[in-house]
């Protein structure tokens, strides 16, 4: 059984297969019967060690639309709060016969560890500050639907890159798909290893904006910060927030994305977030289609069509 642990594990063909499959599956959401029989009799466990609304509901809706049985597990109010280890929880799931395990965990690498312990397919739904591959896939899907292409698309990812698994997964996937990514952040919010990533880096948002087809704003993840990375929220917002003036500097057909949850007035102004060129709610809708595609390709056949 194969897994989806990192966006970097996907080849160009596999990534395009997921996006094409998602486009077909998106039609299901427009029908009166929003369900396909494909994963009937398969069990998907949502294993969430970290708070999540969007991703958990999205995975649950996707699995249910494919007729899989869904078991939701959150660390709060379970045996984890009594001190059970990840491995023992994994073995319990294994004994219950889970075909697929969707895991969200605060530690980087948790999904890969889990993949070594269970027989089912493991889907990484965010591990610490490491990766969030289905988010990158739904972002790529949204860009492709809105802009018509990914090849040569200029994408700026702005904000707290250091703590962002979304940024890393997006950089890896978008470079596989031929887009040109520029990361924009204060030097303190860039990881040390960023020089080895397949992307450009800038500290100056105003310089990057006019040369971008897509701007992806990231939330400042205060809950992961143990130190002061910038002097004040107001200063951060002034230098790296997307407000009306900066929005006007974008090319006319450029779009604004945000993986959510967003803090209006911090990284993005309310006016920009609600503009027709913002794809924030579209991303949520597309997330279900993309996750249906991933579940189908991992669990639908005798063996997985994607993954590592």
């Amino acid at each position: 059984m194969r897994h989806l642990l990192s966006a970097g594990d996907l080849s160009r063909d596999e990534a395009l297969l997921i996006l094409d499959t998602a486009r077909e599956l998106a039609q299901v959401s427009g029908r009166s019967v929003k369900k396909l029989p494909t994963l009937r009799g398969r069990t998907v466990v949502n294993l969430f060690y970290e708070d999540s609304t969007r991703t958990r509901i999205s995975f649950e809706a996707a699995a249910k639309r494919m007729s899989a049985d869904v078991i939701n597990f959150s660390a709060k109010g379970s045996s984890v709060s009594k001190g059970e280890s990840l491995k023992d929880t994994a073995l319990t799931l294994q004994a219950m016969g889970a075909d697929g395990v969707v895991i969200r965990h605060s530690s980087s690498g948790a999904a890969r560890r889990l993949a070594g312990w269970v027989d089912g397919a493991v889907l990484n739904a965010g591990d610490g500050t490491h990766e969030h591959p289905t988010q990158a896939l739904l972002d790529a899907y949204t860009m492709r639907e809105r802009m018509g292409r990914l090849e040569g698309l200029r994408v700026a990812i702005v904000g707290d890159i250091l703590h962002s698994r979304v940024a890393r997964s997006n950089v890896l996937l978008l470079s596989t798909l031929g887009a040109e990514v520029t990361l924009v952040a204060p030097p303190t919010l860039l990881p040390v290893s960023v020089g080895a990533w397949p992307c450009a880096v800038s500290y100056d948002l105003d310089e990057v904006l006019p040369k971008s087809d897509v701007v992806m704003m990231l939330r400042v993840q205060a809950e992961r910060m143990q130190a002061a990375f910038f002097p004040s929220a107001r200063e951060y917002s002034r230098r790296y927030g997307l407000d009306r003036d900066r929005f006007a500097r974008l090319p006319d057909d450029a779009i604004v994305m945000h993986p959510g949850p967003m803090i209006r007035g911090m990284e993005i102004s309310a006016e920009v977030a609600d503009s027709p060129r913002s794809t924030i709610t579209e991303q949520v809708t597309n997330g279900v289609s993309v996750r249906m595609a991933v579940l189908y390709l991992l669990l639908g056949g005798s063996e997985s069509a994607i993954g590592n």
Partner: peptide
């Protein structure tokens, strides 16, 4: 479906 790897959709 379960006799072959997942197929691409038409």
């Amino acid at each position: 479906l379960r006799l072959a790897p997942a197929r691409a959709l038409g």
